[in-house]
């Protein structure tokens, strides 16, 4: 945390070194989160790039009292939500309850992952978005369920329910495959 605070301070003073370190520290963390949420390598890359570009542009106007890691994760989450909504508005829409099957479900050569991670991302994509989001934020972004409840504007019990049902579905989907 102290390292992040110093990086924030240096970043605000225009340090390219600080930006580089923040980028390197959280790049793969955000990519993994984005993949867990959208299961689309190209889209995940675009989302993470957008997060970092917006962050870099903020410069000295950037104000953050809390955790840099949570902030970047929340930015990624918001962009993923935007993309999900945009897809729903497309003529061939993807309803929340319809499993998301992306043409890009296998990460392209620009992204490195193991077979298990790809299978997990595919299985996550079968979940309703809200359940997928809770699981990704809790297990991939290490957020507490109570915090996620705030992000989803629902009660903690609803979040716990989404988490529990989501895991159940994943257990079924992954049964014997991992």
């Amino acid at each position: 945390m102290i390292e992040d605070e110093l990086l924030k301070w240096k970043f605000k003073s225009g340090s390219k070194d600080a930006l580089r370190r923040i980028y390197e520290k959280y790049r793969d963390y955000l990519l993994t989160l984005a993949m867990a949420l959208v299961n689309d390598a190209g889209l995940a890359e675009d989302i993470v790039q957008d997060v970092f570009v917006t962050f870099a542009q903020a410069g000295d106007t950037f104000k953050l009292r809390g955790s840099l890691k949570s902030y970047l994760a929340t930015c990624t989450l918001n962009r993923c939500r935007d993309q999900i909504r945009a897809r729903k508005r497309q003529p061939v829409s993807l309803d929340d309850d319809v499993p998301m099957r992306s043409d890009f479900s296998t990460p392209d050569r620009r992204m490195i992952s193991d077979e298990q991670s790809r299978q997990l991302a595919d299985a996550m994509a079968q979940l309703p978005y809200e359940q997928r989001e809770v699981i990704a934020l809790h297990l991939n972004a290490a957020m507490k369920l109570r915090y996620i409840a705030g992000l989803q504007s629902v009660s903690i019990s609803t979040v716990k329910g989404r988490y529990r049902y989501g895991l159940q579905k994943l257990r079924s989907a992954l049964n014997g495959r991992l």
Binding site: R27, D28, L31, T32, M35, A36, A41, A44, E45, P107, R109, R110, M111, I112, S113, D114, Q116, S117, L120, A121, M124, I135, L139, N140, L167, L170, R171, L174, L178
Partner: peptide
Amino acid sequence: IENVLRKMSFKAGSE
């Protein structure tokens, strides 16, 4: 399942 999901990892390739 939780432990396996926690280990899910995607990394940027050099390009």
